[in-house]
């Protein structure tokens, strides 16, 4: 929530003058996250867990939709098309196919949930690809990525806890969550060794 809130805040027209909108954020990743949250939270309408659960689902969808709108429509001029080029079809298609093959239950909601779990684990790839192409990440982008990466990494601790105390585990969520966290690891290394020391992330050319 902090990461997504940061992004909306930094892209919000009230908060920053249009020219200050942070560059270096991948619009493609933001679209993938929006698709992820919509596909996963369709049960908002059918399955009430708690106020917190519903509130966070609404926040995730609303904030990522706002970010996509601000980046790709309102501040389209500042969006860096040239460096945000990873083909998302090559991420969406395999996730969709895998969701049809490996899932807990062959029902529309379950398939969409599974697709969303697989998609989230690779949704950051366009962003990491863009950082490698631009060769650097703005500090605020680094904070955003760190928050986004640690969100799923912390879930791994929760899954371990629930395995030992509730004897509950969801293998699909765990495998995808581990893959997702591993994808962030090289970024975590850069974040901790550089950004926290006040430096910017500049990747070797």
């Amino acid at each position: 929530a902090a990461g997504i809130g940061l992004l909306v805040g930094m892209n919000c027209p009230k908060a920053v003058k249009p020219r200050d909108v942070i560059t270096g954020i991948s619009g493609r990743s933001q679209i993938l996250f929006l698709v992820t949250y919509v596909a996963r939270y369709l049960d908002l309408l059918t399955n009430f867990v708690s106020v917190y659960n519903t509130a966070m689902k609404v926040f995730f969808i609303a904030a990522s939709a706002a970010t996509v709108y601000l980046m790709l429509f309102k501040f389209k001029a500042t969006y860096d098309h040239n460096h945000d080029t990873l083909r998302v079809e090559f991420l969406i298609a395999p996730c969709a196919l895998l969701a049809l093959v490996v899932n807990h239950d062959f029902t529309p909601l379950e398939i969409l949930w599974t697709f969303s779990i697989y998609l989230e684990s690779v949704a950051i790839l366009p962003q990491l690809f863009m950082v490698s192409k631009t060769g650097e990440a703005e500090t605020i982008t680094s904070h955003y990525l760190f928050a986004l990466g640690s969100y799923r990494a912390l879930y791994i601790l929760n899954w371990i806890y629930r395995y030992y105390f509730d004897n509950f585990f969801d293998l699909i969520a765990i495998v995808a969550g581990v893959v997702q966290t591993v994808l962030y690891c090289d970024f975590f290394y850069l974040y901790i060794t550089k950004v926290l020391k006040g430096k910017k992330i500049v990747l070797p050319a």
Binding site: N47, V49, K57, H104, D105, T107, E110
Partner: peptide
Amino acid sequence: SPTTEGKDEL
């Protein structure tokens, strides 16, 4: 297995 009803995670 935690199908749709049992999902309580984000």
